[in-house]
Design a protein around this nucleic acid. Structure first.
Length: 558
RNA sequence: GCGCCCGUAGCUCAGCGGAUAGAGCACCUGACUUCGGAUCAGGUGGUCGGGGGUUCGAAUCCCUCCGGGCGCGCCA
């Protein structure tokens, strides 16, 4: 739940003289106790120091607590109390003053609430989806879209500079295959065995402009290629429209052919050669990837005259091209069926002289598509699949985003669209959105009653907030609000986003509980009402910003 | 055969070295003459796949077995 935060400088203990130097590693953590009555933060540092100091953890904890308490007598200290709990935890409680200051800062600058700056911001390229434009996106491809879009939002919120990229193949035989399929339908012949059969292929055949065939005829080109290029561009722009509908935008669309035409592939092969990491075998050129930990060496050219590069060769060229743009980190989001590919791409990066750790692969687990409890195979070739568009039409963007955001990338999903439709009304996203709409409603009502929440620069704000925070409902809500930045950090570090949906749900629960116990609009208690209005305004901002991380809408009414 | 991922409540999933293993859905019992009941309070439900080991402490780390998924083209 909480980040495993190393404590800076924790190897310099405060006890008098003769203290051993204690190596502190990531095993020392500060986290939120599962039980909120234990305080706002808990650390296991005393447990970790017990062994090197050869003292009981409880005793060490008491020494540290005594030291912290003396500094906490300062009225401006954010720490209100430090407690020691068996077997040696240190539990720290935040002061109302600190909580009030947090709420105030949210109201002062709502847009930046939850945005943080990590220790080392990077320029990161994230490539995802990258489905070949041979058919519309189906829910299998779509997982990468959800995962990648969410990751990019989180990385950006954490202070990284992020560029989103889609790589598509317009070079290989699949292009010709879809062209041949379209041509076959057009000429009322049977679709070839390796062709495509979905309804969209028939639509393409219907929409194909005659000029494409005429031009091919004039130049003497195989019409399958000419039609294939036309068809794949149609499909690609359809994919872009689907992703747009999802709220997922790409900064760069890169085609494989540009890598070949602009010389990146050749340059990459030359560099591998210069590094002495290629050899020739059976008339092919082979990259010695085993030198860098791969299981076997990989063919990069199918002949020795620099012709016929393999798909892998294009990927190596792509690595060179991407790094030439100055990224410090290059992330690929792949389906787990590509896991065998990780070692060879990292090997290539290393041979090319790049940091292999700057190349990172995130693998998403399989989505099994089930209908009536039985698996249905999805295939663009057979045309049997559920498209992203259908999914979004059936259950809506918000419910779909929440569904995928709630699951770890590594967690396999059984997707039953009938079940998803049935359950979409039960999707927790509505529960959280309801909390947001309810706050909006209260704020509207307050305005009608002539009560506006105190502004961020209202001199009375701090005092009004500190006056209400001793209240249990207020304090619990404020503590939930205050967690957003660390939730963002957690998500950015772990590169998993489901903590955000969990957090948003917990925040909504905290608000609903507050709503039950604390009446906001009360003309007889103007000061308390003003403080509570400020608190729920900050809650609304926090919910809205969490939705922003998820790409989910924040409705004023439902 | 080799490699990677995954087995946690009836279902879908969190937790990934700490304090009593959690949430949503489902099921059961309650709660509105006041700011939105798409709500709230409570309850039923678990050999964390099995077995060893490491540790003060294991769902979490290591070994092993069982079950499931995915890879192991000069395809893309």
């Amino acid at each position: 739940m909480a980040p495993a935060a190393p404590i800076p400088g924790a190897s310099a203990p405060a006890s008098a003289g003769g203290a051993p130097t204690v190596p502190v590693d990531s095993a020392v953590t500060i986290e939120h106790p599962a039980d909120p009555t234990r305080g706002d933060f808990a650390s296991n540092i005393a447990l970790k120091l017990a062994k090197p100091y050869r003292r009981p953890p409880l005793e060490i904890a008491r020494i540290i607590a005594a030291h912290v308490v003396t500094t906490a007598t300062d009225p401006d200290s954010p720490i209100a109390a430090v407690e020691v709990a068996p077997p040696g935890f240190l539990n720290v409680r935040l002061s109302d003053h600190a909580l009030a200051a947090t709420v105030q800062s949210i109201l002062r600058n709502p847009a930046s609430w939850g945005r943080i700056t990590v220790a080392r911001p990077e320029h990161i390229n994230v490539e995802f989806v990258s489905a070949n434009p041979t058919g519309p996106l189906h829910i299998g491809n779509a997982r990468g879209a959800f995962t990648g879009d969410l990751l990019c939002r989180v990385l950006a919120a954490a202070g990284h500079k992020v560029e989103r990229e889609y790589y598509f193949n317009d070079f290989g035989s699949q292009v010709k295959n879809i062209g041949a399929s379209v041509v076959a339908i057009r000429e009322k012949c049977d679709i070839p065995d390796d062709g495509y059969h979905g309804d969209y292929v028939y639509d393409l055949a219907r929409d194909l402009p005659a000029s494409v065939l005429v031009d091919a005829d004039r130049t003497g080109e195989d019409p399958s290629w000419a039609v294939g290029r036309w068809a794949s561009e149609q499909v690609r722009s359809g994919i872009e429209a689907s992703l747009d509908h999802l709220g997922c935008h790409f900064d760069v669309w890169r085609s494989e052919s540009t890598l070949h035409n602009d010389g990146w592939v050749k340059q990459a092969v030359d560099r591998l050669r210069a590094a002495g990491d290629v050899y020739e075998e059976d008339g092919a050129v082979v990259f010695r990837s085993t030198k860098f930990g791969d299981d076997k060496d990989r063919v990069i050219l199918r002949s020795t005259d620099d012709a016929a590069p393999t798909y892998f060769a294009a990927d190596i060229g792509y690595l060179v091209e991407k790094f030439s743009r100055g990224y410090e980190r290059i992330v690929f989001i792949w389906g787990e069926d590509h896991h065998g590919y990780v070692a060879r791409v990292k090997a290539a990066a290393q041979s090319l002289g790049f940091d292999r750790d700057a190349v990172q692969m995130i693998l998403t687990a399989w989505v099994r598509f089930v209908r009536d409890g039985k698996e249905v195979s999805m295939s663009k070739r057979t045309g049997e699949f559920i498209t992203l568009d259908e999914l979004l039409a059936e259950i809506g963007v918000d419910a779909a985003r929440w569904f995928f955001a709630s699951r770890a990338a590594s967690s396999g999903i059984d997707f039953d669209i009938e079940l998803a439709k049935k359950q979409s009304n039960e999707n927790p996203v509505y529960y959280v959105q309801y909390a947001h709409a309810r706050i909006a409603s209260i704020l509207r009502k307050a305005e009608e009653a002539g009560m506006t929440p105190p502004g961020a620069d209202d001199a009375r704000l701090a005092g009004l907030l500190e006056a209400i925070l001793p209240g249990v409902p207020e304090a619990q809500l404020a503590r939930q609000i205050a967690r957003l930045p660390e939730v963002v950090e957690d998500a950015a570090v772990s590169e998993e986003t489901h903590g955000i949906t969990t957090y948003a749900t917990e925040l909504a629960t905290a608000f609903h509980a507050f709503y039950r116990d604390a009446r906001v609009i009360d003309e007889t208690e103007p000061d308390r009402s003003a403080g509570r209005l400020a608190l729920i305004a900050a809650t609304k901002t926090t919910l809205a910003n969490a939705f922003g991380l998820l790409g989910v809408s924040a409705p004023e009414t439902m």
